[in-house]
Amino acid sequence: MKLHLVCVGRLSESYLRDAAEDFSRRVQRYLPLTVTELKEEKGGKKADPGFFREREGERLLARIADETFVIALDEKGKIRTSEELADFLGQHMVQGTGELAFVIGGAYGLSDAVRQRANLVLSLSPLTFTHQMARVILFEQIYRGMTILRNEPYHNR
């Protein structure tokens, strides 16, 4: 199974880039991972967040193959424990899912079209994180899930 992160925006802070690179390397010990970063929509003071979400949503969807299982990260999504995420990953590995695509929107979130295309809408926490921090947290949780599946010592049970 392959993992694909499709996201809006680049990591602007070096500490976020370092953490994302570290955890993405760890994830790649277990599964191939591809990251696709799309440019954020820009606007002035009278910018319309809905317009930005729609435009970014169109570009996100254009990067996802029809047969891909899509997990949209959204603060209103379902909350899973680390163990439940591990089980989810394990089930898809056993079922032979070709690709899981995780989608992270920009500063204004995801469009309705992206949420509708998603097979699962997942929340990383009831707290709100920046879309840049969400990437680091997602990679860490995927890595944690893989260590849980392999019964490795990273996750303290």
Rank of each mutant, 00 (worst) to 15 (best):
G9K: 07
L3W: 07
R150W: 08
R55P: 00
G106A: 04
F139E: 09
F88I: 00
P32R: 14
F23Y: 15
T97C: 12
R157W: 05
L73P: 01
A20W: 10
T97D: 04
A19D: 09
R26Q: 13
G145W: 13
K39P: 15
D112Y: 00
F102G: 06
G9D: 11
V27Y: 08
R150P: 00
I148Q: 06
G50A: 13
Q141W: 01
D48A: 04
T34W: 01
L127W: 10
A47S: 11
R80C: 05
V136A: 10
K39E: 15
A72E: 06
S14M: 04
A47R: 14
A101Q: 07
H92I: 12
V121D: 01
N119M: 01
D112A: 11
G105K: 03
R115K: 15
D48T: 10
L73G: 00
G57M: 04
S125F: 11
C7D: 03
V27C: 12
R59T: 08
R53Q: 11
D18E: 15
M1F: 05
V35P: 00
E41V: 15
K78E: 15
G145N: 13
T68Q: 10
E37A: 13
Q95R: 15
L122K: 00
L61C: 08
Q116N: 10
L11N: 04
